[in-house]
Design a protein around this nucleic acid. Structure first.
Lengths: 228, 228
DNA sequence: ACCTGAACACCGTTCAAGT
DNA sequence: ACCTGAACACCGTTCAAGT
């Protein structure tokens, strides 16, 4: 189907095709047979360029880290460690928003993409270069958690396929919900009221991401002041 | 194999058996056929008590939240919102350490376990009851992220099956690594030196968990003071 | 009503055979 | 060296049949 159908297969072409499939159809669609079809080839041919499905996913994870590094290189231009980290993590978030399948895929992985070490090395270097101790830099890496990859771990993010019937049912016993979940109901009522702009309003990911980021960065800054 | 082999199948017995299988053999071992065998029954019989595999995993997630709630009920006895949250999240962590498969399983889930709403309702109630605004409580819920479920999202946690050959290979070009990853190498050297007790030493999860928890709780407390 | 056996439509992967 | 077709050992799930 694609232009380069007749070109010889390489590891790079296989990974590029995998990225295309997964961006267009999601991670579940990425089967060896489907990927073979994308390249105009039998599934078995892929094994000459990658040892198996695990290696394919490893390669995909690695390609994603590379894209995050590239995006950060384009954007990070500040001098201070705090602002540099902020820019780094916001760049990572942009990449993750381009690939909605990525958080779940990375979370399910048990092996470390080789490129991740180099990526984190740069982050640690930014902190120690800014005067943070190795101990505080170490703690910071853990505190940021998945933030360095562009997402706070929002478990159970809402699905694209919403059930209209469920919404109706939910509305029907909204009063029952208010009784069972008084604090959540009150919070939604108070917060939704303030959300004039739907993009910046209720549970907007960007707002929450930046709040958490600032919270942790400010806390580290205070810790860095205390360590002297 | 089990004592209750002849008792009639119920949804509860199926879920209890699933929890047994997954605790003993991991999430990959949980197939409909394997679960049937655990109960001395054909795989197809399970469909009379659960609609399918998705519902089985939903049930497992729900049972896990229930266990977290029960553990918290046993332990949380403080008066202030800050200490109550600290105890709540440490209780959740204990449950997660009992079920190492749980973080990955919850992270892969796309639907929300019903019980999670009630669990978060209690957490929000603790904060608003302590004087935090709905806005700050909302931001806090996002900032805590998976901490309420007992884990910071440590992507790529080390596997149980370690490759000795890989360790040897890694040692062989340790100098090469030091050149390629100078900041990480320096951090490991500095931090590992201080780690007299291996349990409390390098990358101990409990230490990192409590550091991040305190960082966020302190930041919220400051935010709560600022909101008046 | 509950459980079964055979079958269906998929997977990842092995292997002998082609070119 | 690279690709193929058939096959193997699995999955979740359907369905007609048993009791």
């Amino acid at each position: 189907m694609s232009v380069e159908e007749r070109a010889p297969l390489t590891r790079e072409r296989v990974l590029a095709a995998a990225m295309r499939v997964v961006d267009a159809e999601g991670i579940k669609a990425l089967t060896m047979r489907r990927l073979g079809a994308e390249l105009g080839v039998e599934a078995m041919s892929l094994y000459h360029h990658l040892p198996g499905k695990e290696a394919l996913l490893d390669g995909l994870a690695d390609a994603l880290i590379a894209e995050i590094q590239a995006e950060a290189a384009l954007r990070v231009d500040a001098a201070g460690w705090k602002e540099r980290l902020r820019q780094t993590f916001l760049a990572a978030r942009v990449v993750m928003l381009r690939h909605p399948w990525a958080p779940g895929m990375l979370g399910a992985r048990t092996t470390v993409p080789a490129r991740l070490f180099a990526y984190y090395d740069g982050i640690v270097g930014t902190m120690t270069g800014g005067g943070l101790s190795h101990r505080l830099a170490h703690r910071a890496v853990h505190a940021f958690g998945t933030m360095a990859l562009g997402f706070t771990q929002e478990l159970f993010r809402p699905e694209a396929a919403g059930g209209a019937a469920d919404v109706d049912a939910a509305e029907a016993d909204l009063t029952a919900m208010a009784a069972a979940l008084p604090h959540l109901t009150a919070m939604v009522a108070a917060e939704a009221h303030d959300a004039a702009d739907p993009v910046l309003g209720w549970c907007d990911g960007q707002t929450e991401f930046e709040f958490t980021l600032a919270l942790i960065l400010d806390g580290l800054e205070r810790g860095a002041a205390g360590q002297r």
